[in-house]
Write a protein that binds this DNA or RNA. Structure first.
Lengths: 235, 235
DNA sequence: ACTTTTATTGAATGGCCATTCAATAAGTGA
DNA sequence: TCACTTATTGAATGGCCATTCAATAAAAGT
């Protein structure tokens, strides 16, 4: 992507080179942010390059200089949001207690985290996602993002099942939880004032408690392994 | 909308008039169907009036004659799908057994019914829904459709709670179930081959069984009132 | 200071698309 | 058959928008 000559790479980061490249990255991010703004405010169909460059307070030709085409700008915007999403849940997952209940809670709360679950970002995400069916490049990015998160979720559902002799099918439960998460996002994206992030989080945690009764207290707090009893299991 | 003179209305349905008006309605539905096709295949942004008229095998100017504007065509398409959706679940709800478990099952299965839950229709629905945030007319239709269904769902969650002394909050449970349904739709809309309607239905029913353990057998079949026991309740 | 590379601008271009409209066909009632 | 209404066509219009590009500014290297 960065086509600055190969010499620079082997010569390391000279001061000047470094400054130029940093500036270049800043511009790109600035433009991506303006794109997210426009997608969230105006929707996909009404987002124009003029909107984006105006939003970034730059001139008309700027996007084609940094991203070659509008199409490419949108793909890189999707990539940007996908990366940010993944970095967020992986960090929270890594930081969670060494315990299945905590890990499940971490995955679910990560999805509804302040950092990524803003009306602005969620709206922009769905604006692009809705076009994914007819755009292979989008579809691939959306699909891969989902697959990584879901794989981790399934893994922990399996683990929970072993720990507490639940009789559910881990794949089905994963599908249900993940569908709920996406549905909650969708509702936030639609943006009636009635639905807020905190409410969605409460809903999601309550559902976790219902599905994994041996792993969570009624209020949605994870139960540490020591305090669990297998009698609570259902089905 | 139909601006055919007022005389005809008071004169009743003369043979000729009737035939003309029926033809007019047929055209409109034909064009709406072509619109749904295009939305599902190409997405919102790439759906043009030329696509629609070609899809209906009619000429370029035809949409503006029957719908005045592209904007109006899309609104009426959304309305059409919204009406169809509502008619479907209301019919199934009315036909269900006089029993809370059956009613809940009817609501959930209606959403994933063959008749309305086709990849084509679900994709078109989300294509329009994604633009709803920036289009008040869309937002209103989507919101109203949701509100009617959810009100009915909440009503039955409350009823179930009373019948079996569940301790959950009916509003929260409604939000969770409904979010899951929308998430399952979204997944069908994205259209990877891996997700099918039947799988989604299984997921949804299994979740019903988990949330309302006194009302459903482990396999998702509704339990008749006579066979329920309150001991099964959780939390 | 001077050359070269890189970044930015904004006007010009060309294509696509919704909408209009004059012409025409088809159907209706006398 | 003849007026008259309604439906349909397809070419013409005008606007919007992505993309290009020549000119210019800024920065880096020498």
């Amino acid at each position: 992507m960065a086509k600055t000559s190969a010499q620079k790479d082997e010569a390391g980061e000279a001061a000047g080179t470094g400054r130029r490249r940093e500036s270049k990255e800043k511009r790109r991010e600035q433009l991506i942010n303006a794109t997210i703004d426009s997608l969230a405010r105006r929707g996909y169909a009404s987002t124009t390059l003029a909107n984006v460059s105006d939003g970034a307070r730059l001139s008309r030709g700027i996007v084609n200089f940094h991203f070659d085409s509008k199409d490419n700008l949108l793909i890189e915007t999707l990539q940007f949001m996908s990366d940010e999403y993944q970095a967020n849940w992986k960090a929270r997952y890594a930081a969670s207690d060494d315990d299945t209940a905590s890990r499940l809670a971490a995955l679910v709360t990560a999805d509804l985290d302040r950092a990524i679950c803003t009306p602005r970002k969620v709206s922009a995400w769905f604006a692009l996602m809705a076009e994914a069916k007819s755009r292979p490049a989008y579809q691939k990015l959306v699909w891969e993002r989902d697959a990584r998160y879901r794989a981790c979720l399934t893994e922990n559902c399996r683990m929970a099942k072993e720990e507490a002799d639940y009789t559910f099918d881990p794949e089905t439960v994963t599908a249900a939880i993940y569908a709920m998460q996406e549905g909650l996002w969708l509702r936030l994206a639609l943006g009636g004032r009635e639905y807020r992030r905190a409410t969605a989080l409460k809903t999601a945690l309550e559902m976790l408690g219902t599905v994994f009764p041996c792993h969570f207290a009624p209020d949605g707090m994870p139960l540490l392994e020591a305090h669990r009893s297998k009698k609570g299991r259902r089905k």
